[in-house]
Amino acid sequence: MKILVCIGNVPDTTTKIKFDTGMQNLDTNGVQWVINPWDELALTRALEIKEQSAGKIEKVSAINVGLVNSEPTIRKALAIGADDAFRINCEPSDSYTIAAQIAEVAKNENYDIIFSGIESSDFNAAAVGSMIAEFMDIASVSAVSSFEFNDGDIILKREIDGGKETVKIQTPFVAIVQKGICINPRIPAMRGIMMAKTKPIKVSTPVSVENLAEALSFEVPPAKAECKMIDAEETDLLIELLHSEAKVL
């Protein structure tokens, strides 16, 4: 059995996001790129499953849709422990494009389980995982927070409103994972970092995908207003400001 883990290359979550003057493109100057946090959790759990599977899982591969600047992030995935990686050489312009590329590789290479983070921390579309399943015409389970093998069955738990749902599933399928799938993302060991250089990254040209959507522009949220401190005695003023300025009354 083989697992494919989708790896998004996203700005570090502490990055101050800026756009160019036309508000159409992200200003990447000074941006530090990292593995999308949900994908990093997915990769960690996939590796744990492989280690606990007594050889049932033969390999865990990472896949990224992106240009060459994604490779340090892919190598981090290899350092963490992925056996090999794919990079589909195209701009990850929207979820549909990304999902189409990943589905193509997953299908051609016969992956049994595809792990995708529930969303990316940059565009937050939360669409790639289920779109991959649609492209491949296979099952997908969303909001997965637990993945276990139980007597040969694969048992997933997913978060639902007010509780959890337990699901038994047959391969192939897409597991769209969220927080809880593992405790912490795995920190790469020194040996892993050294080995990453020797593991293969298979670069391929993208399949042609119809462009269905185009981002026209972006807006950044308005700067947070200054915090006003009102004296505890001045309740009338507080009510007045909540009414006239904050407009919450």
């Binding site: 340090p72 190598r75 981090k76 920190i187 790469p188 020194m190 970092i193 990453a196 250089k197």
Partner: peptide, 17 residues
Amino acid sequence: TEEQLMIQQAARDFAER
């Protein structure tokens, strides 16, 4: 190098966590 930065980040992540 990329490896040196990865080790720096690994040590930072470990220390903070």
